[in-house]
Design a binder for these strands. Structure first.
Lengths: 231, 231
DNA sequence: AAGAAATGTTAACAAATGTTAAAACTGTTT
DNA sequence: AAACAGTTTTAACATTTGTTAACATTTCTT
């Protein structure tokens, strides 16, 4: 799939920022429709088929939250990135995030926005594929879709976090998974506490993979973790 | 590695679908050999060196599973994508997946197939990189991936910094590693203090390599360090 | 030879990670 | 609404790792 086919709905009431963003995104190969408030956004959204929404929260007539609330009723899948002013409480945004969502605080660089868009699009495309993915990890089998870890004949259920974390590790087997990358992808939040939470799950995974001593989750100080399976 | 070098064995008994797939894949730069059943597949597979197999499950003479079972006996690494009819139980396929495998349900788009192929090829190439990282340093063995230093039967864990520093030294064994090079690569910072930190780790490595007196980390005043193993 | 700069070494401290358990949260049942 | 079972987060404490400071020694410069 190519960028040229990806259609973005951009909701931004500030005409300056709006057109600048639109220009940059178009330069990067996306199709972008700009709406200046929630009401207009809804109309446009219903008439077309978008792959991603960029939504400013503070807008006249209908704000970002109201907009998202509306479209979520008919479409629970489309990834949304909120554009927020710094002042806004993070709590509120987090409460609003559903499924494939993320948020980014103004002012932000266009590069950062692009990175997050790519991550979200990749993820949402993945989730469309109902199939896929049994991995061999040493003597274990890991079934990502079913969230189970198999050792010989014994199967063990993984929790959501365990499953996601093991998935990102195994997808990058032999390579370092940066803390920040994992936190962004799984926790959508790279705060201090999210980081500690991740450490807890690393510890849990290590326990669950203990039956094969050739498997190790190595911590790379200051960067992250890497999963290795030695010969 | 380039697409032009990637050789694919395609097993598909339906001549229509078979040649369509072959054409599309060739247009995308792959080399593709088409076989119409398992028996023929085995013969071709044994005579050549493929990077990926696309295997239809339902085939006359020898079906996809039987084919894979055969080739897995001699080659446990090559990635395989099963092409399956919708009716088939997912259980059976999943049970079959080992290591770098995936499957895709007919009908599928060529784009989706290409995406999965790329993902698998990337992963299998990575797992190749994972393996070669053990260096002999005098009487020691140094395993960069596992971050361990082995002397006779005793293994000693290295910290991340020790590991990185020893790695850059051993990769340039006999040659000077410039201070600045190491600092930029490992510390990502060539300030005064980072430099002192590096000196500390050089000191630590010297201690850990003391058991073999033919190993030396020589300091080259004003430039950096070099690792040498005499005789 | 004397002073300056670079390196060697050790130890104190700061920061990151490992681990366990309690608290908070979620969804479900009663 | 209370009780619950399962999951995740937060807190606390232990341990490991990395940085900085201090002082010793070596090397270079003049």
């Amino acid at each position: 799939m190519n960028n040229q086919e990806i259609k973005i709905l951009l909701l931004e009431d500030d005409p300056n920022l709006g057109t600048i963003l639109q220009d940059h995104l178009i330069m990067n190969g996306y199709k972008v429709i700009l709406a200046v408030n929630g009401v207009e956004g809804i109309n446009i959204f219903d008439r077309d088929n978008f792959d991603l929404c960029l939504v400013d929260i503070m807008m006249p007539k209908m704000d970002g939250f109201a907009f998202v609330e509306k479209i979520r009723k008919t479409n629970s899948e489309i990834p949304i990135i909120f554009l927020t002013a710094k002042s806004l409480k993070e709590d509120k945004i987090k409460g609003f995030q559903i499924g494939c969502d993320d948020y980014i605080t103004k002012p932000f660089s266009i590069e950062e926005l692009l990175l997050r868009m790519i991550a979200l699009l990749k993820r949402s495309r993945k989730s469309q594929n109902t199939q896929k993915s049994v991995y061999q990890i040493g003597k274990y089998k890991f079934d990502y879709n079913r969230q189970v870890l198999l050792f010989q004949k014994e199967s063990h259920k993984l929790t959501t976090r365990e499953n996601e974390l093991l998935h990102i590790l195994v997808e990058n087997i032999g390579n370092v998974v940066e803390r920040e990358t994992a936190l962004r992808e799984i926790w959508r939040d790279d705060s201090f506490f999210a980081g500690r939470s991740m450490d807890v799950f690393i510890s849990k995974l290590r326990k669950q993979l203990k039956k094969d001593s050739s498997i190790e989750i190595i911590s790379v100080h200051g960067r992250g973790f890497k999963l290795i399976v030695s010969a």
